[in-house]
Design a protein around this nucleic acid. Structure first.
Length: 247
DNA sequence: ATTCTTACA
DNA sequence: TGTAAGCA
């Protein structure tokens, strides 16, 4: 474990002793360990200090940085901090696998519920065999698919879509995670006092990726749907769809 | 010699 | 954010 005196810490982070003291007074930096009269900082402090400086450079005010840190420490996800949770709804957080009967699947997919489509769904991980019936690892995905089918999209193409979506999302998620790994989790083997921080980051990675994907998808949908369907059609659909809420 | 606190600009 | 005085 590497210790720093205040001067070492300031140098390592590329700031001044004075500023470190200010951040400390403002409670942006956790209280250092005390050895007699002098303050001893750890790598965790350095990581935090770099975060503070980074946010300052990006124009955040002290109060905002503190909010972030408090939220972080109280164990809330970044999504919650940014208020995305309300937009997303709790549904994105976690979903439980659900048992689905053959009868249910028949009802949802009608005569397109064929052995070959079942086989493909299983290959794609959309369904799992449980003896005579099935389990859906992601009921949301299943429902979304069922809705497309009920709208008249052939199940074959829905499965094509699911496969493509899976690949694309995997790719994007990998990029996000890799960026975090590269810039935040910089050590292959964290030191003892970094371990809490690392596990914190890992724990937040999942909700973080989901928030990011959701936000990006929402923006993308707004841009792409009118382009594909044509502005007039969308306008018509929006106005007739929710008469009460249409602006 | 260095750090810490307080205070002022 | 920098600087200074007085202290441990």
């Amino acid at each position: 474990m590497v210790d720093y005196r205040i001067d070492d810490l300031a140098r390592a982070a590329g700031t001044t002793v004075r500023n470190v003291r200010v951040y400390q007074d403002r409670e942006l930096l956790p209280p250092p360990r005390r050895e007699g009269r002098t303050a001893i900082y750890s790598d965790a402090h350095l990581v935090r200090l770099r975060l503070i400086i980074n946010m300052l450079e990006r124009g955040y005010a002290f109060a905002q940085i503190k909010e972030m840190i408090v939220a972080w420490e109280s164990g809330r996800s970044l999504g919650e901090v940014l208020g995305l949770e309300e937009v997303v709804g709790a549904s994105w957080a976690d979903e439980e696998p659900r048992a689905v009967t053959v009868g249910e699947l028949r009802k949802k997919f009608g005569k397109q519920f064929s052995p070959s489509n079942i086989k493909r769904s299983i290959e794609l991980g959309l369904l799992e065999r449980r003896g005579r019936s099935f389990v859906s690892p992601s009921p949301q995905l299943l429902d979304a698919g069922a809705e497309l089918v009920s709208l008249g999209v052939p199940l074959n193409e829905v499965l094509d879509l699911a496969e493509q979506l899976q690949k694309d999302i995997d790719h994007v998620a990998e990029i996000l995670v890799e960026v975090v790994r590269k810039h935040v989790l910089t050590r292959p083997v964290p030191s003892d006092d970094e371990i809490p921080y690392y596990s914190d980051v890992l724990q937040r990675l999942r909700p973080l990726v989901m928030s990011a994907l959701n936000a990006a998808a929402a923006r993308s949908a707004e841009r792409v749907i009118p382009g594909v369907l044509g502005d007039k059609l969308v306008e018509l659909l929006v106005n007739t769809g929710k008469p009460g809420e249409a602006s």
